[in-house]
């Protein structure tokens, strides 16, 4: 092993400090459009440009359904009034609401993940793969990938669930012992993405097996997927899957400030 050990030591620590601190390096996330006010007509134009119907007009503005956003940037480039762009990566949303049960303290620091590829284009899978790499290193948070559903706690699904992968996905879900959670990653897994429901794919995971957390993006960057894993274990709060048109309430002013 000559050379490898010094090379590794020379490389140093590259791991992100998320979730303890925000990751600010450029290029870690493509960002998402934000819903908000829009001039009359401009909102309709934006909604027309969106190929998947993620942007809809809603009382004097546009709302964005993140489940459908495929990062085509049609709304951001070549338009006179692009929507606000939201940087960041904490996009995962828990969709079970009150019915969601936390996984329990036994799973706080040690979880096994089974990753099932139900027909994705390859980008979501590679982003999931990066989580095991030195930059994101999900092992330090207690997440590990396992090849068998028998020892898995979380099922991560990418892809729109093609007709051929429907039965294997269901078998994998049923082979996991309780308690188990499902995380759907990527626009294809949430809504079918650019493919949508068709003769060859189910248009998302939700109709095939029950989903607990959805991570939007096409593909969601590794930090967003990591956020999704933290949400499903209750270690981070859930985000919203929809950005409404109403402006957020103004920040409360401190007492006595001008």
């Amino acid at each position: 092993m000559r050379g490898w050990v010094p090379a590794g030591l020379r490389t140093g620590v590259r791991t992100t400090r998320y979730p303890d601190a925000e990751e600010t390096a450029p290029g870690v996330s493509p960002g998402l459009p934000r819903g908000g006010r829009a001039a009359d007509g401009a909102g309709g134009a934006l909604a027309d440009r969106c190929p998947t119907g993620a942007i809809v007009t809603e009382d004097h503005g546009i709302a964005v359904d993140y489940r459908r956003c495929v990062h085509c940037f049609r709304c951001a480039r070549g338009v006179p009034a692009p929507p606000d762009w939201q940087p960041g990566y904490e996009w995962a949303a828990s969709v079970r609401g009150d019915a969601a049960q936390p996984l329990g303290p036994a799973f706080a620091r040690s979880l096994r993940i089974l990753v099932v590829d139900a027909g994705d284009c390859g980008a979501c899978l590679r982003e999931v793969k990066q989580l095991s790499g030195p930059y994101y290193n999900m092992h330090r948070l207690g997440f590990f990938v396992t090849p068998t559903p028998r020892s898995a706690d979380i099922l991560v699904v990418v892809g729109p669930v093609t007709a051929h992968m429907r039965s294997p996905l269901v078998q994998a879900y049923e082979a996991m012992p309780a308690p188990k959670r499902v995380v759907a990653v990527g626009a294809c897994a949430l809504s079918g993405g650019v493919f949508g429901p068709s003769f060859a794919s189910a248009g998302g995971v939700a109709g095939v097996i029950p989903v607990d957390v959805m991570v939007p993006g096409n593909p969601p960057p590794p930090l967003a997927i990591l956020h999704g894993l933290l949400v499903v274990t209750g270690r981070r709060p859930s985000a919203a899957l929809r950005s409404p048109a109403a402006a957020p309430p103004p920040a409360p002013r401190a007492e006595g400030a001008p």
């Binding site: 068998t148 559903p149 028998r150 992968m165 039965s167 294997p168 996905l169 078998q171 994998a172 049923e174 082979a175 012992p177 309780a178």
Partner: peptide, 12 residues
């Protein structure tokens, strides 16, 4: 106790 078929990778 739940009994399921043997895990075979998702074969039919």
């Amino acid at each position: 106790v739940t009994r399921r078929r043997c895990w075979d990778g998702g074969l039919p």
